[in-house]
């Protein structure tokens, strides 16, 4: 299911307290994000597992909601 993506490190300063959430599950991500293009939009996930969830659940669900 995983397409071409890449791991991107999260670079923070010592004073940084804002934590990056996953675009799919909302979980905070400590050190690196899985960056991948989905339907022409760049998304940042905590894992390839979340990319799969996004493609197989979130996207179809949104399409269905739009259709109705």
């Amino acid at each position: 299911m995983t397409t071409v993506g890449h791991w991107e490190p999260i670079v923070t300063q010592i004073w940084d307290t804002v934590i990056t959430p996953c675009d799919c599950c909302g979980q905070v991500v400590a050190k690196r994000l899985w960056v991948v293009d989905v339907d022409g939009e760049e998304h940042r996930f905590c894992s390839t597992r979340c990319e799969e969830l996004y493609r197989t659940h979130v996207v179809p669900q949104r399409r269905a909601e739009t259709a109705t």
Binding site: T17, V18, C24, C25, G26
Partner: peptide
């Protein structure tokens, strides 16, 4: 088990 909790809601608080 997969969980989706949108950040900034009552189910996934964001700082501070």
């Amino acid at each position: 088990i997969h969980i989706i909790a949108p950040p900034g809601t009552v189910t996934n608080v964001v700082y501070p």
